[in-house]
């Protein structure tokens, strides 16, 4: 793990090829715009053929966003680094059910029209398929 350039921050690793920019899009809402960050794309990797990777300085990814990212790509790993040391290694495990984090894709679902916290059962992990506990719509988060 080449973390020497990052003394404090977050490394999101083992993203599938092409997910880097999509991930950045998701992170935009959480970032304040001043962070230094690097997106690595097409990095040769053993696990996957190629992987994407993001390093963000002075930014610590929250639990909910980690879970969200893991739903998009179950194999990702997230390292929180403080003073040059990995203080937290999040190897997100896909839970059996989740609450909040992601909106139901069914626009007519009551959780969308009146803003209740959505809840889901995980119907399948490969690919990740969520089933809304309210409208029972099934979908793969994107």
């Amino acid at each position: 793990m080449k973390t020497q350039m990052l003394n404090n921050g977050t490394v999101i690793d083992h993203m599938p090829e092409g997910m880097g920019f999509h991930c950045l899009d998701i992170l935009k809402k959480r970032l304040n715009g001043n962070e230094t960050l690097i997106v690595f794309m097409n990095v040769p990797s053993g696990k996957l053929k190629k992987k994407d990777m993001i390093k963000i300085q002075d930014f610590y990814l929250d639990e909910a966003t980690s879970t969200y990212l893991s739903l998009l790509a179950p194999q990702i790993t997230i390292n929180i680094i403080k003073d040059g040391v990995v203080t937290k290694k999040i190897n997100p495990e896909i839970p059996h059910e989740i609450k909040g984090i992601i909106s139901c894709v069914n626009s007519r679902c009551i959780t969308n029209t009146e803003g209740y916290t959505p809840e889901y059962d995980i119907r399948s992990k490969e690919p990740v398929t969520l089933k809304c506990k309210y409208c029972e719509f099934e979908f793969t988060p994107k």
């Binding site: 009551i110 959780t111 506990k133 029972e136």
Partner: peptide
């Protein structure tokens, strides 16, 4: 009876008395 899917479940969560779904959108 309500046009939005999942509405009857919301109703059951907030109601202190039994709720019967008479149709929630395209769901049940």
């Amino acid at each position: 009876r309500h046009p939005n899917e999942g509405s009857a479940r919301v109703a059951s969560q907030y109601s202190s008395v039994p709720v019967i779904n008479g149709g929630d959108g395209g769901h049940q």
